[in-house]
Amino acid sequence: MRQYIYAFVVGGIICVIAQVLMDTTKLKPAHILVLFVTLGGVLSALGVYQPLVNIAGAGATIPIPGFGHAMVSGVLEEIEKSGIVGVFSGGLKATAIGLSAAVLFGYIMALLFNPKG
């Protein structure tokens, strides 16, 4: 139960930060997404994001900073295993399922549906 509450609260707070940025600055959704994914990666490197994931689970992995975190931690792990090569393979390896899903489902939905306007 506690896990669900943390997921809800932490996920909600991350979205609130983005909302405040959108309402008070000129940043558009695309800028917010890029900013957050980069931030997630940097926080991951600083060792801050993984503890957040440990506490909040999906509350930290489902928001877009979680994607940055997944790529960076993937790279860092892969460096341990295969050195410099891991710098280039780890990120995409760690997020491969999500990316394939995004391309596949994106394509299928575009085939099946038409925009309603």
Binding site: A7, F8, G12, A56, G59, P63
Partner: peptide, 9 residues
């Protein structure tokens, strides 16, 4: 946002 993460959990 919280609800979507809850579903994710």
């Amino acid at each position: 946002g919280g609800f979507i993460c809850l579903i994710g959990q």
